[in-house]
Structures are given as C-alpha cells and as structure tokens.
C-alpha cells in the first residue's frame, strides 16, 4: 500500500511542504524574535523575550492554508509531465495535507503545552469543561478537523485559481475582494434598516453547534458533523476543479 504511486507522491509532497514550513519558521523566528531581541539587547541591555508572545501555531495554521492554496498549478505541471493522472495527483495532495495538518496540530499542542494553556481553551466548540480523556480527545480531533477545514478551503481556492490564466487570476484576486466589500457593506446597511426576527437563525446556529439551552453545553457531535460536511464539500470541489486542470500557455 505504502508503495502505491499516490502514497509515494504524498510523501514527496509532504516532505516539500515540511521543508517550506521549516523555512517559514526560520523567517518567522528571524523577524519576530531574533531582530527584536537584538534591538532590545542593543538599546535596553536585556533580551525582552517572552515565550508567551510567540505564535508558532498561528503561523503554522496560516502556512497550512497558504501551502494548500499555492503550488497547485506547479504540481499539476510536473505531475502531468511525469505521467501522473489528475486523480492520483489530487489524492496524493489530500494525503499530504492530512499529514501536514497533523504536524501543525502537534506544533499547536506543543505551543499550548509550553505556554501552559489547556487545549479545551482553543476548542471553542467543546463545552464539556471537565478535564477527562474524552474531552481532550474530542478537542484534539476537532482542532485537527478545524485545521483540515482551513487547508481544504485553501485547496479549493487554489485549485480554482489554477484553472485561470494570469489575466483571469488578476481579475479574481483584485475583483473578488472589491465585490465582497461592496456586498458586505450593502448587506450590513440593509440589515441595519431591516426589521429581522433573528430567532430562527439563532436556533439554527444552536443546532449546528449542538448548543443545549437546558445545560448550557455544546454537543461536539453536531459541530463535528458540520466540520466534516465542510471538509467533504471542499474536498469534492477541489477534486472537481483539479479534474478540469489543463496545460496553459501563459
């Protein structure tokens, strides 16, 4: 099984992503720790470094999104050159993302452990604040799913952008935020003036997050299903886009 083409590619993809993640951390440490520490030592005589101020987990999460967003067309180019079908390349990418998200999860947990934070603090969906193994397990699983949601959202956008030529990309990258801002502004204005009964929306949200009015707790199963649906939809969309990839001349 491990010798299958998609597994070989997934490991290759994962290794490359890992190297890029390490380089991201090198830059992050350089910019946020080394340079400020050098300045502090120079001007104040002390390091001024506090462990609590680091944000490796945030950077790793952001990296996960960006890594899934970028390199899709480049990956397509070299895989199709080397006789790999779009399906196999996509599947390898998904496996690579699953592994990379696992690494980011470990980084996240190590940082929380070092900072003395509890994992349940991060897992907003988990309402069971008693510290049982099950609670931690649910929190870890949900955190992992949250990272996958992030990565697959990046993958969908990346696969979609990979279909566009340079001009199309420029139009989308510039045009989409503009359209979004205008739409959100108008929507906000409309909502302010409209007399909307929010009860239905609030109740629906409660169901989505598994909130119980009687206990004040959240049922993690509901939110897990929502996350799973997001992951599956994004996975399906990215597969659909990747099947349409073709060599461009731009």
């Amino acid at each position: 099984m491990l010798k299958s083409k998609s597994n070989r590619l997934a490991l290759y993809d994962f290794n490359r992503s890992l190297i890029r993640l390490v380089w991201t951390f090198v830059w992050f440490v350089g910019i946020t720790i080394v340079i400020p520490v050098l300045f502090s030592i120079t001007f104040n005589g002390s390091t001024g470094f506090k462990l609590n101020s680091t944000g490796f987990a945030f950077v790793a999460g952001l990296y996960l999104f960006i890594d899934a967003l970028m390199f899709n067309y480049d990956n397509f180019k070299w895989t199709i050159q080397n006789g790999i079908s779009r399906r196999t390349a996509w599947w390898a990418r998904i496996k690579g993302i699953l592994l990379l998200a696992l690494v980011v999860l470990v980084i996240d947990m190590i940082e929380m452990f070092v900072k003395g934070q509890k994992i349940t603090v991060h897992s907003v969906f988990v309402g069971y604040q008693n510290e049982t193994v099950g609670t931690y397990l649910i929190a870890i699983v949900q955190l992992y799913m949250g990272l996958l949601m992030l990565a697959l959202a990046g993958l969908v956008v990346g696969c979609f952008l990979a279909l566009l030529n340079k001009r199309g990309k420029a139009i989308v990258i510039i045009g989409f935020p503009v359209v979004l801002i205008v739409a959100v502004t108008n929507l906000a204005r409309a909502l302010v003036h409209a007399n909307i009964d929010w009860t239905g929306i609030v109740n629906f949200s409660k169901i989505m997050f598994g909130y119980s009015d009687s206990t004040g707790n959240f049922n993690p199963v509901n939110s897990s299903i929502v996350m799973l649906v997001w992951i599956l939809v994004c996975g399906g969309l990215s597969y659909w886009f990747s099947q349409k990839l073709r060599l461009r001349r731009d």
């Binding site: 083409k5 006789g83 790999i84 079908s85 779009r86 099947q243």
Partner: peptide, 12 residues
Amino acid sequence: VENDDILADMFL
C-alpha cells in the same frame, strides 16, 4: 484520460 497505467507508459 485519467488512466495512470497508460500515462505511466508515455512520456512527452
């Protein structure tokens, strides 16, 4: 199309 075995037997 989408056939890994065949694609692995070609190089362009």
